[in-house]
Design a protein around this nucleic acid. Structure first.
Length: 271
DNA sequence: CAGTGGGCCTGAGTGC
DNA sequence: TGCACTCAGGCCCACT
């Protein structure tokens, strides 16, 4: 499940190699979450100037316009001079002068969207409400604490919503909450300043560590050069229901919150 | 207005 | 073996 670390690792694995490449051809497969927003032929001849990331979106800067790529929950990118023949789940491909960029996405929750700039209606719809970047200097502990105070719902839901801080999906929300000693069900507005501060630190540490380890490969994630991630080996709670806590030995519990699983240690994490 | 829950989509896993 | 069912979950959107 691509969260911020997987998207960033993907970006790092092909950004330099695709820089300044010119698009030779575009191939589309089955429909993704949103339509491309232009004729595929409109991309031909443009150059890819840079690859940036905003939250879980990759932004490919073109001469004229911007390509937004989201991996959904089962998407992965490959970039190589020569790729194998395309398969049933390859739904977008950019052939360039420096190699081929391909999106494989069995569940098709992902998207590739062309937009003229970050101020366009579609870009605003997708990017407009995104919160702070947790690994950047703009991630402000005071603003983070204020944001938590303003939300009358479970802290885990606030992290997943992405309007306060971006890039934290189910895995890293569970892991960060464990490291901060906070139960996923704790009400955001009730967290003390100290606990909010520990959560702030935990988010930064968990995400930075996951990027270092190449992300988490649970089923089939790999970066654009094909390498797998290893952070899942360091998971303290995620998908460890019934196993013993690596800190205190207590059995890890799982609950449902907003139709998704939360994992926590009942002893190390309190409300 | 904020918060909640449905639906999108397919493959892996489980039980009968 | 095969079928029906559940689950994975990021995100938008309709609803309360």
């Amino acid at each position: 499940m691509p969260e911020l670390p997987e998207v960033e690792v993907t970006r790092l694995s092909f950004a330099a190699r695709i820089a300044n490449a010119r698009v030779l051809a575009v191939t589309t497969g089955k429909p993704l979450r949103w339509p491309l927003g232009c004729l595929p032929s409109a991309l031909v001849g443009q150059s890819v100037l840079a690859v940036r990331r905003r939250g879980k979106y990759l932004l490919l800067d073109l001469d004229k316009g911007l390509l937004l790529i989201h991996l959904g929950m089962s998407g992965s990118l490959s970039f190589a001079v020569q790729l194998p023949a395309s398969g049933a789940h390859d739904h977008f491909e950019l052939a360039t002068t420096q190699g081929c960029l391909r999106l494989n996405d069995p569940r098709r929750f992902g998207a590739v969207v062309f937009t003229l700039d970050e101020g366009s209606p579609m870009a605003l719809k997708l990017l407009g409400k995104l919160g702070m970047e947790p690994l950047s200097d703009e991630f402000d502990p005071v603003a983070f604490q204020r944001g938590l105070k303003a939300r009358r719902t479970a802290v885990k839901q606030v992290l997943l919503a992405g309007e306060l801080v971006v890039g934290v999906g189910n895995i890293y929300a569970c892991e960060a909450l464990f490291h901060a000693g906070i139960r996923p069900t704790a009400l955001a507005a009730n967290l003390s300043g100290g606990r909010a501060g520990r959560l702030y630190d935990a988010i930064r540490e968990v995400l930075a560590r996951a990027v270092q380890r190449g992300g988490s490969t649970l089923r089939d994630f790999s970066s654009a050069d094909g390498s797998a991630g290893h952070f899942q080996l360091e998971a303290m709670v995620y998908a460890r229901t019934g196993k013993s806590c690596k800190v205190c030995g207590t059995s890890i519990k799982s609950i449902r919150q907003g139709q998704r699983s939360s994992f926590f240690c009942p002893k190390c994490q309190r409300n």
